[in-house]
């Protein structure tokens, strides 16, 4: 009977299927109904795009205004386009050095959690053994409990291994808290990889190790990229964990410095600087996204499908 191979969807080697690629341009002259639908679609999506873009532009514009200007009129353009707010945010919050800390911590944790996460997700998806279901739920459970209730026990774990207030300690913690998310999403992905490939590898005499590293992992690349990007966004913005576990100002990560700055800007009612700080925090992530978005478009379904 009919067989819709789910494995085919995300990763089947090219040529085995005819991918359904929406044409990006050159819509053939269609029927009147088509035109209506197309027009309607464009209208809806353009309205939505405005809904997304306007607030962001408004923030960008406000970041150049003085606080008085912000209060005076939400629409008016700034009287003069000065970078005072940015200079203020950059120097007061000391962004330069914290930026580097953030990069170290996030990249370190990302490598660790992707490594652990992909391995565990693969095993859970590939083998059925007693307790595998319980483990899956354990991963899910890790996503449901509020982090700040775990801070005190976590503090003792880190102190016990001598990594409190250090970047390595923060890396381990970040990695551990990103782990369930990674497994949860990659699990679904590995399940969609065809069993026959693994079996073929086994027939060829490849052990489990080789099967994973030489066959499954390369096939999973799009999914890994997707989860990695999502993790990057999540970890970059993490700020509950470092508050208590990373109290040495030299080791602050960007979000801590930003929170501290935002808090002060809030007290001294400097909304212009606050908006500038917002722009500074968001821009690196936005750039990463724009660079990797093609990767994401091509693979996001893989990461979460089936």
């Amino acid at each position: 009977m009919t067989q819709i191979s789910q494995g085919a969807a995300p990763v089947a080697p090219a040529g085995e299927r005819v991918p359904f690629e929406p044409a990006e341009s050159g819509e053939a002259p269609g029927t009147a109904g088509d035109k209506a639908v197309t027009g309607f679609s464009h209208t809806v999506l353009i309205i939505w795009s405005f809904l997304v873009i306007i607030p962001l532009i408004w923030v960008l514009m406000s970041s150049f205004k003085t606080s008085s200007e912000i209060f005076a009129s939400p629409f008016a353009l700034p009287e003069r386009w000065s970078f005072d707010n940015y200079v203020n945010a950059w120097t007061t919050a000391g962004i330069g050095s914290f930026f580097l800390n953030s990069v170290i911590v996030v990249v370190g944790a990302l490598i660790l959690t992707m490594f652990f996460g992909s391995m565990s997700a693969y095993v859970l998806a590939r083998f059925s053994f007693p307790g595998s279901r319980a483990l899956y739920y354990l991963m899910l459970a890790g996503l449901t409990f509020p982090i700040f209730l775990a801070i005190v026990p976590l503090f003792f774990v880190l102190r016990g291994i001598g990594l409190l207030n250090t970047l390595p300690g923060l890396i381990l913690t970040y990695a551990a808290f990103a782990f369930p998310f990674t497994v949860f999403f990659l699990y679904a992905f590995f399940r969609s990889l065809s069993k026959s490939i693994a079996e073929a590898a086994a027939v060829d005499g490849a052990g489990e190790w080789r099967t994973f590293f030489q066959i499954m992992l390369p096939m999973a690349k799009p999914g890994l990229a997707t989860v990695a990007i999502l993790n990057f966004v999540g970890l970059w913005n993490q700020f509950l964990l470092p508050i208590a576990l990373n109290t040495n100002p030299d080791n602050y990560v960007l979000t801590q410095a930003m929170a501290s700055f935002a808090s002060q800007a809030g007290y001294s009612v400097d909304f212009g600087a606050l908006f500038a700080a917002v722009v500074i925090t968001v821009v690196p992530v936005l750039i990463i996204y724009l660079i990797f978005q093609r990767q994401l478009q091509g693979s996001v379904s893989a990461g979460v499908s089936k």
Partner: peptide
């Protein structure tokens, strides 16, 4: 002198310890 913006969360574990 160390600054903090969230006194309770920053110091809670240290009180316990």
């Amino acid at each position: 002198v160390t600054p903090t913006t969230k006194v309770a969360q920053t110091l809670q574990p240290r009180f316990v310890a």
